[in-house]
Amino acid sequence: MATMNMVHAINLALKEEMERDKNVVILGEDVGRDGGVFRVTEGLMDQFGEERVMDTPLAESGIVGTAIGMAVYGLRPVAEIQFMGFIYPAVDQIFNHAARIRSRSRGRYSVPLVIRTPYGVGIKSPEHHSESSEAHFCHMPGIKVVVPSSPYNAKGLLISAIRDPDPVIFLESTRLYRMIKEEVPEGEYTVPLGKARIVQEGGQVTVVAWGSMLQKTMKAVEGADAEVIDLMTLNPFDEETVYASVKKTGRVVIVHEAPKTGGFGAEISASIAEDAMLYLKGPIKRVTGYDAVLPLPKLEDYYMPTVERIRKGIDEVMQY
């Protein structure tokens, strides 16, 4: 087993899936010769050729729209959108087509497409490079939204996403890309979509997080009797695991990087209120980004939930 970071783990997943299945192709901006701006697709064009690893014109709607056609025709495209902030030209294709073709064709056609895209604050970058807009995509039935939090689950989740019969948005935290290394098996293993992971068991408070926020959450719970849940898939999210934990602890903190209003934390919170309300000892607390246009690097650190803010959130619910 090799130790590797998330960039390498995702690269390995792509390579192994392409070796296994000739229908897996990659397309996007700078994914070929350059190996992607984060080097996630490095070496793949050399190994699989320009026909399977396509440097496309600079057009997100073009990338996703053609990938939908490929997917319906029988390929398994993995499209890369260079940054999540640039996915919006493709949203028409994602919402009006990728999400609906199975339904509109009453099951005759499907879109086994993966759209990988880096997201979140993390590399002190210019405008539009640091957003986390996962909630928009979670609101669209027909699309799955997956957010790995470590190299191991990134590889396993991506393999599941590629094999999944429906479109998957696969969000890769730029902050995590090279931050953590861990053991990642070579060869096949999968991490199932729609299943959360209990990172740490605990009895007093449930803390739900995903992707980029997991690291900080783990620091924040040091010394607390907290159960930490890494959702990994946001839609469909693993209600059973969350409710079981809430029933045990009676207290909930939800942590996300995206702005508070309309964030995915609202969905989790409302679901708990509907289905596990009577187990709660007090209000649910969200620790999130602010309702702001994401600031440039000088204020980025103030925008992001910090370990202290998460800890404060936990302290607050512990009052009940």
Partner: peptide, 11 residues
């Protein structure tokens, strides 16, 4: 050039 993509690949 558009990052690593040459003009000939845009059009």
């Amino acid at each position: 050039w558009a990052i690593s993509v040459p003009r000939a690949k845009q059009t």
